[in-house]
C-alpha cells in the first residue's frame, strides 16, 4: 500500500492497517505524534481504530525535545 506521508509518496508493508500501525512503522517506541488523516485531525484515542487505505494523505508531526 502507498501513503502520501508529509508530502512524500511512501510504500508501507501489508500489516499496516491503522493509524496506530502507521505511527509504529515510522517511529521508535512511544512517540508523541499529532496526525492529520485525509485533512481530518485525529484525537489520540482514535489512532487504533482509524483504518488507512491506499493513497490516503497523512500528515505526521512528532514532538521532540532538543534545542
Amino acid at each position: 500500500m502507498n501513503l502520501l506521508v508529509n508530502g512524500n509518496d511512501l510504500q508501507v508493508p501489508s500489516d499496516v492497517n491503522t493509524i496506530a500501525d502507521v505511527i509504529t512503522h515510522f517511529f521508535e517506541q512511544d512517540p508523541i505524534v499529532i496526525v492529520e488523516h485525509n485533512g481530518e485531525i485525529l484525537e489520540k484515542n482514535h489512532h487504533t481504530e482509524r483504518i488507512v487505505a491506499d493513497g490516503d494523505k497523512i500528515e505526521l508531526v512528532q514532538f521532540v525535545g532538543g534545542g
Partner: peptide, 13 residues
C-alpha cells in the same frame, strides 16, 4: 534531510 514537511491546524485540540 528527508525533505518532508507538515503544517497542521491544531485548534480543535
Amino acid at each position: 534531510w528527508t525533505n518532508q514537511q507538515a503544517s497542521i491546524d491544531v485548534s480543535t485540540f
